[in-house]
Design a binder for these strands. Sequence first.
RNA 1: GCCCGGGUGGCGGAAUGGUAGACGCGGUGGACUCAAAAUCCAUUGUCCUUGCGGGCGUGCGGGUUCGAAUCCCGCCCCGGGCACCA
Length: 824
Amino acid sequence: MVEVGDAYDPIAVEAKWQKRWDQEGTYNVDPGDPRPKSYVLCMYPYPSGPAHQGHVRNYTFGDLNVRYRTMKGEAVLSPFGFDSFGLPAENAAIKTGIHPRTFTDARIEELKTSVKSLGAMYDWRREIRSHDPSYMRWVQWIFLRFYNAGLAYRAEAPVNWCPGCKTVLANEQVLADGTCERSGDVVERRTLKQWFLRITAYADQLLDALDGLDWPERVKTMQRNWIGRSEGAQFELVVQGKDDVKLEVFTTRPDTGFGVTFAVLAPEHPLVDTLTTEDHREEVEVLRSEAARQSDLDRQSGHGDLGKAGAFTGSYVINPFNGEPVPVYVADYVLMGYGTGAIMAVPAEDERDWAFAKAHGLPIVRTTEPPDGFGDHPYGGNGRKTNSGFMNGMGVAEAKEAALDWLESNGLGERKVNFRLRDWLVSRQRYWGCPIPVVHCPSCGVVGVAEEDLPVLAPDDVEFLPTGESPLASHEGFKKVSCPSCSGPAERETDTLDTFVDSSWYFLRFCDPWNDQAPFSIEAAEEWMPVDQYIGGIEHAILHLLYARFFTRALSDLGIAPGGLKEPFARLFTQGMIRMGGTKMSKSKGNLIAPSKYLETVGADALRLSQLSLAPPADDVDWTSQTEEMIEGWAKWTQRVWRLATGEAGSGVVRPEGENDGDTELRRATHRAINKVTSDMDRWSYNTATAALRELTNAAYIHLGKGVGEEALSEAVDSLLLMLAPMAPHLAAEAWERRHGEHIHTKPWPIADPELARDQKVTLIVQVNGKVRDRIEVDPAIGHQEAEALALASERARAHMGDAEPAKVVVRPPRLVNIVVPAG
RNA sequence: GCCCGGGUGGCGGAAUGGUAGACGCGGUGGACUCAAAAUCCAUUGUCCUUGCGGGCGUGCGGGUUCGAAUCCCGCCCCGGGCACCA
């Protein structure tokens, strides 16, 4: 009978196995492993202290994949590291005076401890910390290679300055409403000399290669929109009376050329001064200073207003299509940063131009015939060309081609592809980041630090003050240096790199983290890359995932990574967020439910099972009081499994000679569960996989109550434990050890016997006019005629047929017969 | 405005053309117990009916089909992304 006191003790058992896995290096992998290789990776975290529920969810999915693949016979690379540069550590330093390194190392230890107590297994020998000099050295080395290859450059540019973070931001870090994604402050525009990485050189490749990636469609769409490719024509407009001045414009609608009734310059356009005549100078100046004063946010808030701000320059350009002069305006709805910063305006076929034309009383000429009764609106759709000279009568697509050919053959312009994507601004005026390894020499200009002098490390003796300048800029010892080229006095660059640079190649370093000759060897990268399964949050859909793709391509092209390696992540899974009360659960929202609360009571396995069962992995989860009750439920279930596994579940075991019907039923339940769980694991349907394990447990208990043979019961329990091993690894390991004295995690994943999984009988549904009227137990091999005869003989079905003869009988053996009788 | 998701019991969710609501949380009833906890069993969409049984039911309105949560058309609502990108 049940021994009181032998209840499953998750706390003791989990500690025991975590220690053992660690010591035995169960999940360490080395070069030359003969097993098929795979690489499973969770996005390395910023260390902000103990793990939160989002981490738990992430690492539960990751660990499940690692352990499942291991049981399937693969050598799985499963590394862990820390994205350990970043603003919070430096802000803490400004507030408390604690050095960012001290602060960060403490946070890393906290996170590492809680990750370990989750029972997630990693090859800790490969751990990476971005702020470790051995990692920084290669970040800087790669930066210099990029610089030498022209992929990193310095330029003066209007940049996004966040007054809260006291640094510039990449375009990707500015939200649609013009605020900083990190601090929420309204971003200002400043003009500074900054470092950029030439991601636009890869715009085409980054876009095209998306098609071949096994990624969520949603993420691919977001990247496509972000890259924003558009095809069209670029051509020159001659300024009337000033033959030497030409205005370049870009359009995706060259077919509308005859409908151009004005042209517009961005306020920052270099030709504004030249084109503005004296009598219009004042209004143009007013508009320009307004635009300059406004933040992006203000400028965008005018979007949609009918009154579009704009001023006439007094100049005219010639429309090359029809030779007519059209007025040139300056308006803030045209952006300097896209295309040429100037447009040909076609009000009839463009909403924005329409609004501007209406506001300023400019003519509107349709070049595409809208559908009948379309009304007084701009029409951007397809239709017959009209008022368009050589294009008249054509459709839009045909006319576009004709217009492009015409522009090119007359030497007026050319086909051109434009991207919305801009180069990646990587300079940050901060201390706690990787220093940009260059020196500014008054005679040699920008000179890269010599390879043997890497890494450039920031000094520790700096003052952390909220000045808006990197503490490095005021550290004379760091700043003053002799030029690596001419040995003359020079100044070190004091900006540091965006932390997204660190995270753009860490997955490559994981393949070969001990290498001190190169960031990683080609062989190691060839052995493990690409990552077979990458797992992380949707919030990185654009930033990190796009930068990492760019880095992989660039490193491959520079011969640093394998030539054939173009994409870092073959398969991506983006998990849902954990929300509470409608908002994302996070430290800044102050609504954290610390996982430690559960790890210290019900244990990691119950918490992991809850995360798996709560919702489909890709869905957002609302944390409610019910969630807590579900965790309790899983804790009870682990006890239920434990009793089953240790033979304490009941006294109903009988040992009859041979196999009886109950045994057959339980065996069928077992093999069906194996099929179900295996396919659910493969399609990331973990919530239904846990349900199938519950069902199998219930079946075992029911048969135990009725009396069941030892063999059938053992098969059920052993299969259950094997399938549980990737989900609740500690419970599975302990129970398996008790039963077999072996290590469960080196056992193979169970395979179902199709014969045993097969149904002995199935329920034949008898419908009359599509409504279920009877259920009959039949042999799965039942034939068409037999099924039909059985259904037509059904009393219950006949009762609903009246006197009518069946008009039709749909027979789908062995599951369904539908008898159709005429209405009435 | 445009582009993606999604809408199913009290709740989380299951079912991708064939028994709607698997599995769980919560509820109700029972067994065990001096009692409680734990455990085990049963029950739980809704309405009508003592019961047998029947009607209704997957956001709303149509359609296709022998048969629709599932496919098609039109709406409504919720979530996310993009948004003056020429």
